[in-house]
């Protein structure tokens, strides 16, 4: 399988999707809706982003190597 078939959708998903994610995080922070009570949720949000990105990366690598 060529590089474009495997990684172009991934890069688009986490490039454009990541842009939406971090822009929306910045927006709620700028509005003061989110900034101790929020610290745990901040961790959940960015770890969640890494989790879904990791699942898709693992899926791609499994398809290539296994």
């Amino acid at each position: 399988m060529d590089f474009t078939r495997v990684w172009l959708p991934y890069l688009y998903l986490y490039g454009v999707g990541g842009l939406f994610f971090f822009a929306s995080l910045a927006l709620v922070a700028r509005a003061g809706a989110f900034s101790p009570a929020d610290r745990r949720w901040f961790r959940v949000l960015w770890l969640g982003f890494l989790w879904v990105a990791g699942l898709h990366a693992a899926g791609n690598l499994a398809a290539l190597w296994l």
Binding site: M1, T4, V6, P9, Y10, G59, N60, A63, L66
Partner: peptide, 8 residues
């Protein structure tokens, strides 16, 4: 069919 994302 093993890829988690469809063709672009």
């Amino acid at each position: 069919f093993k890829l988690p994302l469809a063709a672009f």
